[in-house]
Computed example of a mutant assay.
Amino acid sequence: MSFRRNALTPDALAMMDTIARTGSFAAAARELGKVPSALTYSVRQLEDALDVLLFDRRSRQAELTAAGEELLNEGRRLLAEMEAVANRVRRVSTGWEAQLTIAIDDALSRRTLLELSEAFYALRPDGHPQGPGTRLRLRAEVMAGTWEALVSGQADLAIGIPGEVLGSPGIEMKPLGELQFVYVMAPHHPLASLPEPLDDLQIVQHRAVAVADSAQRLSPQTVNLLSGQDVLTVPTMQMKIDALLRGLGAGFVPLSMVHDHLGAGHLVSREVQRQRRHSRTHYAWRSAAVGHPRKAPQGLALQWWLNQLESPATRAALLERPSGLPTCP
């Protein structure tokens, strides 16, 4: 098995690509600066190592067999991946991380996050045509799950951490802003016809729709649920809004995510005696590379994202812009 693997060198794969692209052994030999016999010998060695026929010897042209076509396609993919790895390694050597993982609370604007990602990929540090070379990994979390992703090392940057979370050694935190919530339900829901403000005795008689905290190890948070109340738990804020549109319950949601639904009459908002109008949120990141003394404490990719979050306009867009609305059923 190892001798087959050893035969599949980058030079051998590049040779196959050149022969297929030029259409003949002679043309490929000229491009590679070799004599045709040397190229023919290299191909036979590769065929012997793989125990397959790569070219049809009955044709005057360099016509690939089915096995040759497969090797050519996979070889081109492998060469592209090796080039990409080399580019990323070069970028890492200049201070750009190989990967940056960003955890964002599900209530914040996904559209803004993707616009920031687009701007990041458009960077051309040192004139490099392929950008920073840092792989972005975005993950949506709910409530304590955003903080857990950071402290557990699963994320490098966490955006939308609840204000109730306490700090931790080695982690820096800054305020993101306040997220405004409203208590909403479908217009045909029983609570929609009651006079305001709604009290606990009225609310507890009807099902609440809640988003499950994504934390696995930390204690999950429960917000604005009453003891004894029936609860429909869903995995995302968008699914919560879909459930509210169908009249499956009532609940608090970010105003930015239902603004258009409220304007169109698909949902209605009601004042509640215990209403929590705002939720303070933060963003946080690791201030030191704990356990990795040879790694820079803050890479250039993380620095770029932190610079964007310094902008009041960016923070406001994450908090106030709708994340996209579903079609009303």
Rank of each mutant, 00 (worst) to 15 (best):
G291K: 02
Y183V: 03
A80S: 14
N87P: 00
E47H: 08
L138Y: 12
Y41E: 15
Q99N: 01
N6K: 09
I203F: 04
D242H: 08
R91K: 03
T22S: 10
L123I: 12
Y283A: 03
H282K: 04
L325G: 06
L8K: 06
A186K: 09
Q154F: 08
R60E: 15
P293D: 00
R4K: 15
R135H: 12
A84V: 04
P132N: 00
A26S: 15
E81T: 09
R44H: 12
A243W: 04
D51S: 14
R137H: 13
L32P: 04
L194M: 15
I104A: 11
R90H: 13
Q221T: 11
T22G: 01
G247D: 06
R90N: 14
L306Q: 00
E178M: 11
A208M: 12
H282R: 11
F25S: 06
I102C: 02
L79N: 11
L325H: 12
S227Y: 09
A144H: 02
D126H: 09
T65S: 10
R5D: 15
A296V: 11
E47W: 10
R44L: 14
V234G: 10
R30C: 07
G228M: 10
G163I: 11
R321P: 07
R246M: 15
R280Y: 00
P220G: 08
N87I: 09
Y121Q: 07
Q45V: 12
A250I: 01
A144K: 04
I104N: 03
D105C: 05
G247N: 08
L318K: 04
H261K: 07
G170W: 00
Q298P: 01
G249P: 14
Q130H: 05
S219H: 05
W305N: 00
E271H: 05
S227T: 11
P197W: 08
V209A: 09
V43I: 15
P254T: 03
V89N: 10
F55Q: 05
A20W: 02
R139P: 04
T112N: 01
A192P: 08
L319M: 14
G251V: 08
V92D: 14
E310F: 00
L114R: 01
G23C: 04
P220R: 04
A301Q: 02
T65F: 10
L176N: 11
D260F: 00
P132K: 02
R58F: 01
G127R: 02
E70N: 03
D213Q: 08
I203L: 15
S117E: 15
L113A: 15
